[in-house]
């Protein structure tokens, strides 16, 4: 397994690529990702908290990850690396990568083609598992994010509970949930869902 972190070195924030690589290595082992899969992570160090974003795609059989520098940043100390946040975010991204390989999401579109509702549903399924393996996940934040895309309704909250506690889930299951909450009827945003990854 080759793990690549860019940039190396970081110039705008004092993050350490070797530390991030070692967190990816630990987490990949914890999630029992196949040792034959290469992983590359691009950290956009221009982006501060609260401008958060992650993207996960499989490119030529390897895992390609993108994250805003803000996702790894301490919430109350600017430009400071937070290992707690980094571990949780990396676990979240790798769970989604594993889903794409052989976890029921093999036929899911690339991240750029997901709707906000689909992405939120998948995120909650992943966050539930991240919490269960012992990482720091703020549940109330996650439900607020979910409600924003699925509605502030009892139906949305019930869907959230199902996703959070699911042991297994599929891409079709996510689509069903989006139909139930009405998220799939929302207008398509004018802004691309992976705008921050595009970096323009």
């Amino acid at each position: 397994m080759t793990i690549t972190v860019t940039p190396d070195p970081f110039v705008l924030v004092p993050y350490d690529a070797a530390t991030i690589r070692s967190i990816i290595e630990d987490t990949a082992a914890q999630l029992e990702l196949s040792a034959s899969i290469d992983i590359s992570l691009r950290v956009d160090e221009q982006l501060p908290h609260p401008i958060l974003a992650t993207n996960v795609d499989i490119v030529d059989g390897a895992i390609s990850l993108f994250v805003s520098g803000g996702n790894f940043e301490s919430r109350n100390k600017s430009r400071t690396f937070s290992e707690v946040h980094a571990r949780a975010e990396i676990a979240h991204m790798l769970f989604r990568a594993k889903d794409r390989f052989d976890g029921g999401f093999e036929n899911a579109p690339v991240d750029a083609d997901l709707t906000l509702g689909e992405r939120q549903s998948w995120d909650i399924y992943a966050w539930g598992r991240v919490a269960r393996i012992g990482h720091n996940v703020h549940q109330q934040k996650r439900i607020y994010d979910f409600r924003m895309q699925h509605g502030f309704t009892d139906a949305a909250d019930a869907a959230y509970e199902r996703l959070w506690s699911a042991q297994t889930m599929t891409w079709d299951g996510v689509r069903e949930i989006c139909a139930e909450t009405g998220a799939n009827e929302r207008p398509t945003p004018k802004t691309p869902i992976d705008l921050l990854r595009q970096g323009v």
Partner: peptide, 24 residues
């Protein structure tokens, strides 16, 4: 990072649910 951010398209300025990272 301030100088770099000024050149980036971070999505619509006005708060909206479909704005990138709207909740955070």
């Amino acid at each position: 990072r301030n100088a770099m951010l000024g050149t980036r398209n971070l999505g619509p300025a006005v708060m909206a649910a479909d704005r990138p990272a709207a909740a955070e």
